[in-house]
Design a protein around this nucleic acid. Structure first.
Lengths: 165, 165
DNA sequence: TTATAATAGTTTGATGTCAAAGTATTTCCT
DNA sequence: AGGAAATACTTTGACATCAAACTATTATAA
């Protein structure tokens, strides 16, 4: 049974909302409503699973993504701005997450020598080690989803239409 | 071009991550990684669109969902706990959102007379009015998604497997 | 050369999410 | 009846997200 869900197994709140939408003459909007609501719920569940897997390392998903990005980057470093671009998050969110990664000794922040406006986040040895362990753990989550590979790929492909804007 | 995305249109960070995953021998986890990452990104984009549409009413998506739920409920009221069950959010999140809806005069909180532990959130006339206008606006978002109806329904059906746990 | 514009990050403030701890009330069981 | 356990909700604290305002640095243009 799901977290926070104490009611009867029989009623599915999203199915119920869909019925209501149709009953109120919003037929056209019903499939979109159901899809968006579903994505929101699923997102929370997935992030929750991931953060449970990452908890032994004191990492959140957001911070893991930054570590992972730096682990792939040339010289293990990237400007704050690039991180925001790649992860599609607000610059303030990058500042916030990087501050915590630095606090925990996983990365360091260094000014770029050719342009002092730029701050580079650089993976440290401890960060590399944590990253490698965390990646193994998170991959267990990725391989144990309820959907088969083909469905996952379909899903990814379809949602790309929304993601790109 | 997307918010916060300043780089070349050619590089797709998720496609790149998938390449890296395969290159590092995490082939099995790659589809899951891509799907989860995509869902996270898409969720943020959708919530962002919705909240832009709701901004004239001073509503967030979370608070809209509560209003919408109350609008469908018998007597326009529900216990805090039921709201959390239906929306699959933590009780503390309900408390937080309801506090703001009450502050804005859209709902009221009343103790249930048969059990004083229970707090009922009840839609007020102003809340009803705001709800109706907000629903029209949010339905415009739901009807203007980049995916056709069949795809939306497929998506909803597939993701239900994850949502139910 | 210098004033203006653009760029890169950070700070602040509002909201949302969750876990864990705390309070109040009701139920259950001896 | 009375104490323990369960239930319902709130509070607190940590973290994430975004928008808007602010600072610093570099580029542009008169």
């Amino acid at each position: 049974m799901s977290k926070y869900f104490l009611g009867s197994t029989l009623d599915d709140p999203i199915a119920e909302a869909t019925r209501q939408w149709r009953a109120h003459g919003w037929e056209e909007a019903a499939p979109g409503m159901a899809a968006v609501t579903t994505i929101t719920r699923v997102n929370r569940i997935l992030v929750s699973r991931i953060e449970e897997a990452l908890s032994p390392f004191g990492l959140t998903f957001a911070r893991f993504e930054i570590l992972r990005l730096l682990g792939f980057a040339r010289d293990n470093e990237l400007p704050m701005g690039k991180i925001g671009d790649r992860l599609q998050v607000h610059p303030a969110s990058v500042t916030s997450a990087v501050k915590r990664l630095e606090r925990d000794g996983l990365i360091e922040r260094v000014p770029a020598d050719h342009d002092n406006r730029i701050v580079l986040a650089r993976l440290l040895p401890d960060g590399r080690k944590t990253l490698e362990q965390a990646t193994r753990r998170i991959n267990e989550v990725f391989t144990s989803l309820e959907l088969d590979t083909a469905t996952l790929q379909d899903l990814t492909a379809h949602l790309a239409a929304i993601r790109s804007d």
